[in-house]
Design a binder for these strands. Structure first.
Lengths: 188, 188
DNA sequence: CCAGTGATGTCATTAAGTGACATCATTATA
DNA sequence: TATAATGATGTCACTTAATGACATCACTGG
């Protein structure tokens, strides 16, 4: 028998998103999250750098996944193609099972400026990481950064569609569609 | 004789940027800023929504300026042309006089993640405003948002150059150069 | 059996941010 | 002229985020 209940982080996450959805991010205190998770506020801050991070701390995993996918794309693939591979690979995180959670999370973030700030910097960090990976493939600047930023724009649009109310398609299908639209746009 | 010394906001701004540059953003308390400005912390929060805003509260003016310039571009001008007009107009804010302040401010923001977050959301807000103005000119989505985002990317790059160490050119010259590079890039 | 480890709890403290109320020179108005 | 309204500021009390220091205690390896 373990000394503590396992999955402290998961419990914090679950408690936090429930409370944020119920009464809003600002109205929720860290103490309340901790109480619902059966832990203390001090422990919350041992797992998350600050109150917002409870909604974002998986992002390093997603970034690693995408950067690896980009790096492993065929050497001959042009920049946007490699970025596309990364965007598709992100689908590992966005399957049907996690869609309800993703929806709740997205709604909470959209409703609060502080949380939108945090999301923006996470996306900027991701963009920088993709650009770095592109440069390691021999893509020069500013093409690397431009391709990365464009990719993140597509990602944002596709993700927003995926968590949208009346959307039935899967994330990968939507991403591929968005990429096709982008290519059509730039082919003008 | 006025009852209070005038320009409370300016004094707060000056005191804040000095202290941020001297000891760093996190090490500076609002009480210290207020003391240097000859006021109290409570008054600081009457002028700025939070500690970071002391570095950003001019942004509505810049946004209004740019949106107006975009709206007043020739009706026949394509999207990117209208955006370019807005970028150039922003130069009203970035003359040689304000360059020292802009440099200090930029260095402070780059050194702190919280401040970068705030900057990102301000730029995102600006981008959304430009996209809205483009739609009012009859530009459809997603072209409006794409043109706006591209414009903001150019703005960021040009601004970073302008505040750069060994840069001698003026902001407008740099922006025009960046726009020319962008056009060359997309002409491939 | 015991020392070390590691996740947690407890307590104290700093600083951001807000609400309530007081102050008082300027301005408008009777 | 006298007085009332205004508005920027100060003071005080309070909540909450965040952090450091130290204690606890089950588990683990020797």
């Amino acid at each position: 028998m373990a000394r503590w209940e396992p999955d402290a982080e998961s419990r914090f996450r679950a408690a936090a998103i429930e409370l944020f959805a119920e009464v809003g991010y600002e109205q929720t205190t860290v103490a309340a999250i901790a109480e619902r998770a059966g832990l203390t506020a001090r422990t919350f801050f041992r797992h998350f750098a600050d109150k917002r991070e409870v909604l974002f701390n998986g992002s390093e995993n997603l970034q690693r996944l995408m950067v690896d996918a980009l790096a492993q794309a065929p050497a001959a693939a042009p920049a946007l193609e490699a970025v596309a591979a990364a965007l598709v690979k992100a689908g590992d995180f966005f399957d049907r099972d996690r869609r309800h959670y993703a929806r709740q999370r997205h709604a909470v973030i959209e409703a609060n400026a502080e949380l939108r700030e945090r999301e923006l910097i996470k996306l900027a960090t991701l963009s920088a990481a993709l650009a770095r990976a592109l440069r390691q493939r021999g893509i020069a600047e500013p093409e690397a950064s431009l391709a990365a930023e464009t990719g993140i724009a597509v990602f944002r649009i596709a993700f927003a569609q995926w968590v949208g109310k009346s959307e039935r398609r899967g994330y990968v299908e939507i991403v591929n569609d968005s990429l096709a639209r982008l290519r059509a746009l730039t082919a003008d």
